[in-house]
């Protein structure tokens, strides 16, 4: 499955789950900021990804949980070096460059882009192959 094919499937999922228009689902769009996803939508999207792609997604695998509440990972409104390491380790599908440049906690949600979803699905499909 090519990345374009993966994007087409993800676009259908996000249009259905978030009631957004097709053209809003671009690789650079952020789920929580640009597409208006709320935390519970992530559960809906997870179900739909499992259904469409046929793989299982463990809790916290798509988006690591509890980061912003953990003082080991966030201090004084910024993600700590340990927090950044944890995100890289648990979220190889994220592009961390912008967050590493400005590790403000409000930037954490910005790494959760459509591109990250494509990477995630591609990695899961390759692992299953």
């Amino acid at each position: 499955m090519t990345r374009d094919e993966i994007l087409d499937t993800i676009r259908e999922i996000l249009v259905d789950a978030l009631a957004v228009d097709d053209d809003e689902v671009t690789p650079s769009a952020t789920l929580i900021g640009d597409l208006g996803a709320e935390s519970i939508d992530i559960l809906d999207i997870t179900f739909k990804l499992e259904q469409e792609f046929g793989f299982k997604i463990a809790q916290g695998e798509l988006f690591p949980e509890g980061i912003t509440q953990d003082p080991d990972y966030v201090q004084d409104g910024k993600v700590t070096a340990r927090g950044l390491e944890m995100l890289k380790e648990r979220g190889p599908h994220f592009d961390m460059a912008a967050l590493e440049a400005d590790p403000s906690v409000e930037n954490v949600r910005k790494i959760f882009t459509v591109e990250a979803l494509i990477n995630f699905c591609e990695q899961k499909l390759q692992a299953a192959a």
Partner: peptide
Amino acid sequence: LIFSHLDRNSAG
């Protein structure tokens, strides 16, 4: 519908 198991909420 979508249901959540409350004790497993992502916010902890």
